[in-house]
Structures are given as C-alpha cells and as structure tokens.
C-alpha cells in the first residue's frame, strides 16, 4: 500500500472514530449525568429519597454495564433500525455506543458526587437551600473536577469501544486495523492504527486532566 493511500485510509477512519465518539460521548453523558446525580441523591434519607426507584435504576445500570459491548451492538439492532432507519454504518453505530456510555458515565458521576463531604450538604440545608439548589450550587459545582475526569475516562473508553462497531459496518480506526492489518496481513497498517489511537487517547487524557486541574481549587497553596 502506498503511503498516500494508507494516509487517506487513516484519515477517513480517524474522522469516523471522532464522529462516533464525539456524538455518543456527548449524548450519552448528557443522559448519564442526571441519572448519576439521581443515583447519588435518592437513597434513604438523602436529598430526593426514593430508595426503590434508586434500586431499580441501579439494577438496569448494572445489567447494561455487564452486557458485553459486542453482544449489545447486535442485540439492539432492531432498536437501532427504529431510531436511525438503518442497522449498519457510522450513524447506526452511534446508537449502541451511546447506550453503553449512559450507565458507565452515570456510575462515575454517582461516585464523584458521593465523594463530596456530607457536611457541605448539611451546611446548604442549614442555609435554607432547596434540594435542586443543593444539586446545582453545591454538588455539581464541587464535583466538577471529578466529573470532568469521569468524562475524559468515558471518552477514552469510547475510543476503545468504537473499535468493535466494525461488526455493524461502523468504520473507524479499529475497523481499519482489523480489516487491513489482521485480515489482509498488513502489519504496517495495524501499527499505524495503533500509533494513531495511542496519540489520540493521550491527547484526550491530557486535555481532560488540564481542564479538571483548572477547576480544582482544593489543593491551592498561597
């Protein structure tokens, strides 16, 4: 394969990966965030006490998280077709990626919020704050660095997951690596794909770390 051709393939696949990861990461996180907040605040004697609903949602989240991703991709094909009108291609691949993101991000958000000192919630209650004010002014504000790191982790995981959607013709870097590198015995393509992925993950992680650090005021020393 000529270098120009390899570069062309890599570029096309990278764009497909970025497309899938960006769209499913954003939509999945937007849905996952409120679910994570709910999981962290709806236990017994918490802000929005609903222990039964909390338990039920926890079960669904666990079930979704324990289903192997490649099985989920195939299992939800009817749903994907309903939503996008097709079951193959990059757009179709976004549906299972999004569905996998929601419970993953929700659990990370839940953990981030549970880390917050209960004393802050008590202080806000003592000021006369409503539960919603506590969520927005205390919990989300204080957990922001941790949530940014959770989002970074989610994006990095999605880059990995997106390699599997080649199974439904989703394309992307992983698919390129399998089809050319593995099935056509082209180790140079495989190597190029792996290098691009390493650089991509590194960039995402560094950007996420920097952003989280900017919002983290806990360890400032004058």
């Amino acid at each position: 394969m000529s270098p120009e051709m390899l570069f062309g393939l890599l570029w096309k696949s990278l764009l497909q990966t970025l497309h899938m990861v960006a769209v499913s990461g954003l939509i999945g996180s937007l849905i996952g965030l409120p679910i994570g907040v709910f999981l962290a605040t709806s236990g017994k004697d918490e802000l929005f006490p609903a222990p039964k609903l909390n338990y039920a949602i926890g079960l669904v989240v666990n079930a979704a998280r324990s289903t192997p991703f490649i099985i989920m991709v195939v299992a939800i094909i009817p749903f994907t077709r309903l939503l996008t009108g097709t079951s193959i291609g990059t757009t179709a691949a976004i549906v299972p990626l999004t569905i996998a993101t929601v419970p993953f991000f929700a659990r990370l958000v839940e953990a981030a919020i549970r880390e917050i000192d209960k004393g802050l919630i008590e202080a806000a209650r003592a000021m006369g704050a409503t539960p919603m004010q506590i969520v927005f002014k205390v919990l989300l504000a204080e957990a922001r660095p941790a949530i940014l790191l959770a989002f970074t982790m989610t994006i990095v995981s999605l880059i990995g997951y997106s390699a599997m959607v080649g199974a439904v013709g989703g394309g992307g870097l992983g698919d390129l690596g399998i089809r050319y590198g593995y099935q056509r015995f082209m180790p140079d393509v495989m190597l190029a794909v792996v290098i691009v992925l390493i650089v991509l993950v590194q960039l995402v992680q560094s950007a996420g770390d920097a952003l989280a650090r900017r919002f983290d005021k806990r360890n400032r020393k004058s």
Binding site: E122, A123, G128, A129, T130, K137, V138, A141, E142, K217
Partner: peptide
C-alpha cells in the same frame, strides 16, 4: 433556616468557591 445561621466544626466551605462566593451562597439561595 434563613433566619438561623449555623457554623460548623469543619467549616463546611465550598472548595470551588472563593471566600466572597462562599459568603454569597446563602444570599444566592
């Protein structure tokens, strides 16, 4: 609760807010 102030052993200040914004919190609420 808006007519009863409270202070705590471990201060319970928001780490993400400046001194000014911490004092402003009950007023925002």
């Amino acid at each position: 609760r808006r007519e009863v102030g409270m202070i705590f052993q471990h201060f319970n200040l928001l780490s993400s807010r400046t001194a000014f914004d911490n004092v402003a919190l009950p007023l925002e609420i």
